[in-house]
Simulated assay, not measured.
Amino acid sequence: MSSTTSAEELRASLKRDGFVRIQKAFSTDDITRFRSAAQHVAERARAGRWRFVRTVPKQFPPWPVSEATTEGIWGVQHLLHPSMPDEDRRAFAESYFGDVMTGAVTALLDCETSDLVMELYNMLVRPPKDFELRWHRDDIGPDVPPEVELERLQEPMMHAQWNLALYPDSSLVVVPGSHARARSGEERKADPFEENMPGQVRVSMEPGDIVFYNNNILHRGVYDCKAERMTLHGTMGLKGADSSRSRNILQHGIGDWAGDCNFSDLPGNMAKLATEMQQRLIGMGSGKDVGFSQRD
């Protein structure tokens, strides 16, 4: 879909398929700026100078930071952290709180910007060796019985989750429609790294494209170490989320630093919006002892 697609069409596609792609949402100039910031933080993280990382081969948090320089990384966490160098932090913040992203999120969630909550902003990067994630739903474990799985899947959508590609990216593999049903018997018995899951689709993105997807769609990641990858991976919530959503966000440690963010240097009304969204996140709690949605 193009950036001119109507809100109704976006919502219909997300509801039907569990994911929707907005093509060329950001300009070439925007992507050039975001790439510069992404390259800086990726270099620091690979050198062990940014402690918030996702280390190979671990899929779920917590990730052992000590292995960043030995095993390598596949992700960088907390792009909005106050210790991020100012120029890079502003670039990431403008991609997150700006009109393009908040406009897409409010369209998908059928809400107002006054409903939005600041959540996670991370980056997925090229690992040092080929690396794959298991088939999973982000907040529903593999051992949940079908009736509980279906009940969880029918809960109202209280957030948006996306990938914003800065380079060509076809790492995300999904099973369209699986966000609205319990897994089939075949899916339950499949190898966790099954390469040909029935109905699977590899989602191809070009720089500037955004893919929004239901985080409980059946999906996995397949990462090619030879292909450059810098994909901004974010979530934005709605106020009034329940405890399971709070755990899904706060398990990443964002509650430790969210209160220290200062967004006053953002342009125009963006500073006010960012601060309001930050305060709604702080209202969710610190995240102490919330546990983890899934572990490995």
Rank of each mutant, 00 (worst) to 15 (best):
E151P: 03
G141A: 14
D130N: 12
W135S: 01
P142G: 05
V144Q: 07
R181V: 05
E151F: 09
V125H: 00
E149G: 04
V144I: 14
R152G: 12
S171L: 01
V173P: 00
V173I: 10
L153E: 04
V148E: 12
L153K: 11
D139S: 15
W162D: 04
V175M: 02
L153P: 06
R134K: 09
V174E: 00
P145Q: 11
V144L: 13
L153Y: 05
D139V: 14
D169P: 02
L133S: 15
P146K: 11
L153R: 06
L172I: 07
V175S: 01
A180T: 10
S170D: 13
P168H: 09
Y167S: 04
A180L: 07
P168V: 04
E149V: 03
K129N: 08
P176C: 06
Y167R: 05
R126T: 09
R134A: 09
E132Q: 09
K129L: 08
S171V: 02
E132M: 07
S178P: 02
Q154A: 15
R181C: 02
E155N: 10
Q161C: 14
Y167V: 06
L164H: 01
D138A: 10
G141N: 12
Q161E: 15
W135M: 04
L166I: 05
M158W: 12
S178N: 03
R181I: 02
D130M: 04
P146C: 10
R152S: 11
D138K: 04
L133M: 15
P127W: 01
V144Y: 04
M158R: 14
A160W: 01
D143R: 14
P127V: 02
S171K: 00
W162A: 11
V144N: 05
E132W: 06
N163A: 14
E149S: 05
E132D: 11
F131P: 00
M157H: 11
V174L: 10
P146R: 13
D139I: 14
H159W: 11
E151S: 13
R126W: 01
V144T: 13
P156Y: 07
A160F: 02
R126M: 06
V174T: 02
D169N: 15
L166T: 01
L164K: 01
V174S: 01
R134W: 05
L166H: 01
I140R: 02
D139T: 15
H179Q: 15
P156Q: 08
P156V: 06
P146V: 07
M157K: 14
D143Y: 13
I140E: 00
G141H: 08
W162V: 03
E149Y: 03
E149I: 03
P176R: 05
W162E: 04
P176N: 07
P168G: 08
H159F: 12
Y167L: 08
P142V: 04
R181H: 06
Q161R: 15
P142E: 07
D138C: 10
V173F: 01
H159P: 01
E149N: 06
L166M: 12
P127Q: 07
Y167E: 13
S170Y: 06
V125K: 00
L172N: 03
P128S: 12
G141W: 08
I140V: 13
P128N: 13
E149D: 09
